[in-house]
Amino acid sequence: MIRQFGVDEFIFILGSAKWTLVLTFIALALGSVFGFIIALARVSRFAPLRMLAGAWIGIVQGVPVLMLLFLSYFGLAIAGLDLPPMIAAGISLSLYAGGFLGEIWRGAIQSVPHPQWEASAALALTRTQQYRYVILPQAVRIAVPPTVGFVVQLVKNTAIVSIIGVVELARAGHLINNATFQPFKVFAVVALIYFCICWPISLLARRLERGVHAGRPG
């Protein structure tokens, strides 16, 4: 029996957007922690740490997110660790976000001019104090626009987890299409919802970018 694409179907799709947002949020939260550690490791004075973090970033950026997803879902299952799809999805997206955020933030930390390190060292600050009071506050300003820009990529990339059966926005569209055979209507709605999530974030990113170049916000 073929259903019509009506209000119920629309609400189902809209409701599933919640999971897209939840996944984005998880990936962003865990990925931030992870990315922060990676960024600090990348600028560490301890060479093995730098290399380890560098290797990790290389892997994450050189491998499709899909492979991270398959590894954490199918791969760990074979190793005896049977993760629910949602968890596997959260983990792989977090790893992906961590790798990219780590690289964005490393760049931000390194673009704080070297004399800022010298001036704060000459004032007898410890390395931790230098980071906390002098380097990171300046790095944050530099990092905010590209970070927000990355969030847009992240929202769109959550679609990939539909492949292991997590019913988020893309998967919901797929299911409804299978029932209604109205692909144009269905996926136009799905696309519109993605757009409504991403567009404001893109706008924000662009505004922040201008703000940074215009100089100091209060």
Binding site: P115, A121, P137
Partner: peptide, 16 residues
């Protein structure tokens, strides 16, 4: 360094 101050050619104030 607590006892020795240095001032550079490029002032190096903390801009933030």
């Amino acid at each position: 360094r607590k006892d020795v101050g240095i001032v550079f050619q490029s002032y190096n104030l903390f801009p933030h």
